[in-house]
């Protein structure tokens, strides 16, 4: 844990953005409430050190839980397999390429994310498993409640750009001036149809399986 010059001090951290996220979907089958907890609101233009807290992602019932994880650059994530099956966690994203290999049920491994960016993580055995890790430059991020209300606090009192992100939406960004302290905003994210099939760790399509 080390601080950087220019890091916002706590006395400055009084800017806030409150508001609401509204989700829209062209696909009638989408459950908007369930999708709300995959939204991340974050601010860029500010660097902070990573907390020592270890974030955890579970492989459970052939799913990643959670499926969207915002973290700070430098933070560690623990991948725990609490499923009954073997999984193979990997990513080919530029921000973090890694391959945990076959992971037996009951085991766990840790990965440190040192570069900001979007990391798409999949399982090489089960194509339906998908995890998006947002590696952010700071700790100024939040996720809305089920009804879409959010509150992004601890912001420096200056201009910052705030993004609203959802894995299936075109990200929205807006520049705000937090000199005045608290601001209100509403983000409207339009969800596109479910993302297509991704390739496996070798860059090849998954073999179709009956299961």
């Amino acid at each position: 844990m080390w601080s950087q010059p220019g890091l916002a001090q706590s006395s400055e951290a009084t800017g806030q953005l409150r508001g609401r996220v509204i989700l829209e979907s062209k696909d009638a089958a989408t459950e908007l409430q369930a999708e709300m907890n995959r939204v991340v609101i974050y601010a860029v233009g500010l660097s902070e050190a990573a907390p020592s807290e270890l974030k955890s992602v579970e492989q459970k019932e052939t799913n990643f839980v959670p499926s969207v994880l915002p973290i700070t650059r430098g933070q560690k994530v623990r991948f725990a397999n609490i499923d009954t099956l073997v999984h193979n966690v990997f990513s080919t994203s530029e921000a973090k390429e890694f391959d945990l290999g076959d992971q037996s049920p009951g085991t766990q491994q840790e990965v440190t994310f040192n570069k900001t960016g979007l990391v798409q993580i999949f399982c090489n055995i089960h194509p339906q498993m998908s995890l998006t890790v947002l590696v952010l430059p700071n700790r100024r991020y939040t996720q809305p409640t089920a009804d879409g209300q959010f509150s992004l606090t601890g912001l420096p009192r200056r201009k910052l750009k705030v993004f609203a992100y959802h894995p299936r939406a075109r990200a929205l960004s807006q520049e705000f001036d937090f000199t005045g302290g608290e601001l209100q905003h509403e983000f409207k994210l339009v969800l596109s149809k479910t993302p297509p099939a991704h390739l496996n760790k070798h860059g090849k399509p998954y073999k179709k399986s009956k299961y």
């Binding site: 860029v44 530029e94 921000a95 570069k115 900001t116 960016g117 979007l118 947002l134 590696v135 952010l136 430059p137 750009k161 993004f163 992100y165 990200a171 960004s173």
Partner: peptide, 15 residues
């Protein structure tokens, strides 16, 4: 090409 793909860029996270 990185610009073409633009993902991190568009999210403000490109380094």
């Amino acid at each position: 090409l990185a610009h073409l793909s633009r993902q991190d860029e568009s999210l403000g996270l490109a380094e």
